[in-house]
Design a binder for these strands. Structure first.
Length: 336
DNA sequence: CGGTTTTGACCCGCGC
DNA sequence: GCGCGGGTCAAAACCG
């Protein structure tokens, strides 16, 4: 991607519930096919979305510093929030948040599941039995068991293979060594209107795969966090319905801080007390990665652009819905 | 030279 | 059982 390209794009965010295995092209199709002829963002605007909680940043989610219950609550709060952050620098930066994270939904299910959340009741909106940080949901826990069995089986096979000399025509020369225990991680997806596929989010990623997506001319890329011991992955694909929209799916939680957070001078622009810096930071990184064009690939340096940001007091919430409870007041201040 | 990307092959789950 | 599609691996290529 060229730096020039980065300058071009603006994007919207659409957070989505990542239903178990989310075949995006299937799940998302309703988002883009509501009204033929209308732009995706237009369509989304009219869509009832689920809003992200400002109390929970993507980064927080990713490195697990947030309360899942909160997140769950936030994500369950249904609202349509087009143009969440309002215009910026003359150009409209639309943020239609749709958040949903499967993660929030099963915390309540797991009653002692190690996390810090787990008190939030399920809402109708979160009725999907989806994954969580611990067990990835009931649905997934089954898979986990299966997977575990599979792993064990594979280990046996590997042993067997090595004993037999490994004469397998179809096997790779080196038998694959699976992770000892790979649990289904919670996933967190959002859509971003962007011309670039791989959005800066403050973390460093290494691409480890790319696959063609069925029924889509656009491939899906697989990234893994480069930080050691951090198993967060993300998938990036472009919507075939609206090529301007990039769908990013995070899986897992970062076990570390965002490099950008560490490096960035987060004090430069103190957010309102109710808004964790990382929330804004993350959004800014998502919304304006071009502003960090000077930073290294995969990283965004908030200090580079935070000072240039206009005050975030102009977001517009045509319909606050439950967001009222979770969106800081400054966001509610509609400009005349 | 070390880290990243590319890319073909492999593996697995699932539906038929 | 088979084929398909998604996900991952890992060697080679690439790049700064």
């Amino acid at each position: 991607m060229s730096r020039e390209n980065r300058e071009l794009y603006h994007h919207d965010h659409h957070f989505l519930r990542d239903r178990s295995d989310l075949p995006f092209h299937d799940d998302l199709s309703p988002f883009f096919s509501q009204r033929p002829g209308a732009s995706a963002s237009q369509e989304l605007r009219g869509f009832h979305l689920q809003a992200a909680s400002p109390y929970m940043s993507i980064a927080e989610y990713l490195h697990g510093s947030s309360d899942y219950g909160l997140l769950s609550k936030a994500f369950d709060a249904s609202c349509s929030s087009p143009e969440m952050f309002g215009p910026r620098d003359g150009g409209l930066v639309k943020r239609e948040l749709v958040v949903d994270a499967s993660i929030g939904t099963n915390l309540n299910v797991s009653t002692g599941g190690g996390g810090d959340g787990g008190t939030t009741p399920l809402t109708p909106n979160s009725s999907v039995s989806s994954s969580s940080s611990e067990a990835a949901g009931e649905e997934d826990s089954g898979r986990c068991k299966k997977y575990q069995q599979k792993v064990e089986e594979e280990e046996k096979q590997q042993l067997k293979g090595s004993e037999e000399g490994g004469d397998k025509s179809k096997k790779v020369s080196k038998p694959r060594r699976k992770a000892e225990k790979r649990q289904r991680q919670p996933r967190f997806a959002f859509m971003t209107k962007s011309e670039v596929d791989h959005l800066e989010d403050g973390y460093r990623w290494r691409k480890y795969g790319q696959k063609a997506v069925k029924n889509s001319p656009y491939p899906r890329s697989y990234y893994r966090c480069t930080t050691q011991k951090c198993s967060v992955k993300k998938r990036v694909e472009r919507s075939y319905q609206d090529p301007t929209i990039v769908i990013t799916t995070y899986e897992g939680q970062h076990t570390h801080q965002s490099p950008a957070t560490i490096r960035g001078s987060t004090h430069l622009l103190a957010p309102p007390p109710t808004v964790p810096m990382s929330f804004r930071q993350d959004f800014l990184m998502h919304q304006m990665p071009h502003l960090s064009a000077g930073s290294q690939q995969g990283e965004a340096n908030p200090s580079m652009y935070l000072p240039t940001l206009p005050p975030l007091q102009q977001p517009q919430f045509p319909d606050y819905g439950l967001l009222q409870d979770i969106v800081p007041s400054f966001i509610h201040n509609k400009q005349p």
